[in-house]
Nucleic acid binder design. Structure first.
Lengths: 152, 152
DNA sequence: TCATTTCGTGCAACCAGGTTGCTGAAACTG
DNA sequence: CAGTTTCAGCAACCTGGTTGCACGAAATGA
């Protein structure tokens, strides 16, 4: 390629590269591409959708291994759905800050079938039967999203 | 809320046969067996687990078609999990009474991996961003269940 | 009770999502 | 720049779940 010098005054300018650095993960083109694909959307993506976003030439196995690695390291999280396919979304800042933010609220639109992460929404406390204690909460709301409702 | 016993028509004694009758579904051995398998457990079962419970000789395709039919008719409901396999559980009385009870709380034990339906627990109201309106709520709590905690 | 219609059953084959085992090629470390 | 570690990529495989179709069993009606 060309021999232009890296125009990087601070250590790392690319936010995705910095994210990998923060989690002690190696810098590879596939990993940066996966992070970029997830950050671009406001909703959760399935493995097949991420694969399509990366374009042809990317290996499926590598992708799924990357997703698993990201999930274990807290860069992304599984999004629960009422289907049998897993979806993934980029973790918010507070999610990766602590060990792992364990309260997730998602909204699935029945029209466009997108599943949005509602990071602002908190799950109110729920009283469980005696003996049960929750460490992780996932709330899935189903309905029609704003965009589909207003016909935008 | 309270579980008052439904009035028993003297015609059908078998509760599973009565359930099929109430939903205008045909009486077949497979269907009664599936209902019995789901009613026996207190937790949700995957397709493979139901298949195993029915014993050898039962066709997988028939089972999945039965499950789909039951779900459409409100006899069972999908149980959301953080895996890529669907689980099914028998609907409670209040679930099949209305069109469909649209608030489900489930508890998944991280030790025994069972997912229990907590019919008694209600989901408190959640304020969503403007434009979003939920018609269905699924709350999945993850932790350690009573049995696994007490070592029973 | 029997004939007819309807619908569930079961087989074969298929499909999508996801996972192993392994080899070669990159990325980090000294 | 050499050595170690890890990732990428291929082939093959597995599980969960689904079509299309022919047959057989339930419901319905006389």
């Amino acid at each position: 390629m060309s021999m232009l010098p890296p125009p990087v005054p601070p250590a790392v300018a690319d936010p995705f590269a910095r994210l990998l650095l923060q989690h002690n993960l190696r810098q590879t083109p596939v990993r940066r591409a996966v992070l970029a694909a997830l950050a671009g959307r406001g909703y959760a993506l399935t493995g097949a959708e991420i694969e399509a976003a990366l374009g042809p030439g990317t290996d499926r196995i590598t992708l799924y291994r990357t997703l698993k690695s990201f999930e274990q390291n807290g860069l992304i999280h599984r999004v629960i759905d009422d289907t049998d396919v897993l979806r993934y979304a980029a973790c918010s800042v507070e999610c990766s800050a602590r060990a792992h933010f364990d309260n997730h609220v998602h909204f699935k639109c029945a029209v466009c079938t997108h599943t949005y992460c509602l990071n602002q929404v908190a799950i109110p406390p729920v009283t469980l039967p005696p003996g049960f204690e929750a460490e992780k909460r996932d709330l899935l709301m189903t309905g029609i999203c704003q965009a589909c409702r207003t016909g935008a």
